Simulated assay, not measured.
Amino acid sequence: MVMAFPHKEQLADSLRGLVEEFGLVIEDIKITKAGAKSAIRIAVDTADPRAERPDLDRLEELSREVSAHLDDAEAKGDMSFGPGYTLELSTPGVDFPLTERRHWVRNIGRQVRLADGVHRIAQVGDEDVVLITPHKKSPRVRRVRFADHAGAVVEVEFSPAPNAEAELVGLAIEAYDVPEAQDPAED
């Protein structure tokens, strides 16, 4: 029986343990099926959002292990990749959407684009995020549930944060005495 090209969930299930041995998590898998031009793109990151992202040497080592694992799975008949495929292993790029709490934590201090504009991530709680919104007189601070803003994307900045915003970044979560889901239109 010839196995079909594996789908994203099959690959994730097959690779999860191996990736975790490296102290990493699978963030995303993209599969492009095109015969000999098929591609498997795997984005991995550290499980601890405050840890350094894996360097190129670590990614290269993991890539060799993943490649060997997939070759073994194909040889055993557990998976079939057709006439050939390309494996790409990387960390998530700046355009990777923030969907998990750890994504928000990793980006504390950075600007993020939400549906209502650009804000700076000041701090992250268990289920909410404290956002700083630039304002003429002084920055506004509000809390929102990060689950309500899954898919937000980091904005690239080419200069440091304004002092008034930078001073609000990284305080203890209790220091932000603002109501949850405060409507900025009320200001």
Score class of each variant (00 low, 15 high):
R143G: 11
E61V: 10
H7E: 15
E74R: 07
D78V: 03
A161W: 03
G109T: 04
D71W: 07
A68H: 08
A51M: 07
R16I: 01
A36T: 10
A185S: 12
Q123L: 03
R113A: 15
L168D: 06
A73M: 13
N107C: 04
A164T: 14
P54S: 02
F146T: 07
R102W: 00
A185V: 13
T46F: 01
G109Q: 09
L11S: 02
V118T: 15
R145P: 13
V144M: 09
I31L: 14
A161S: 15
I26C: 02
K76T: 07
V124I: 05
D13Q: 05
N107V: 04
D48G: 04
E27C: 11
Y85H: 03
M1I: 06
S90A: 12
E155P: 06
V105R: 00
A181M: 11
A73P: 08
R16G: 01
E88F: 06
K33C: 06
L171K: 15
L89H: 01
A166V: 08
L114V: 11
P179T: 12
A68E: 11
D72V: 13
D95L: 09
K137T: 15
D128L: 00
D55M: 04
P97I: 12
D78E: 14
T86S: 05
H149K: 08
V25N: 05
S90I: 05
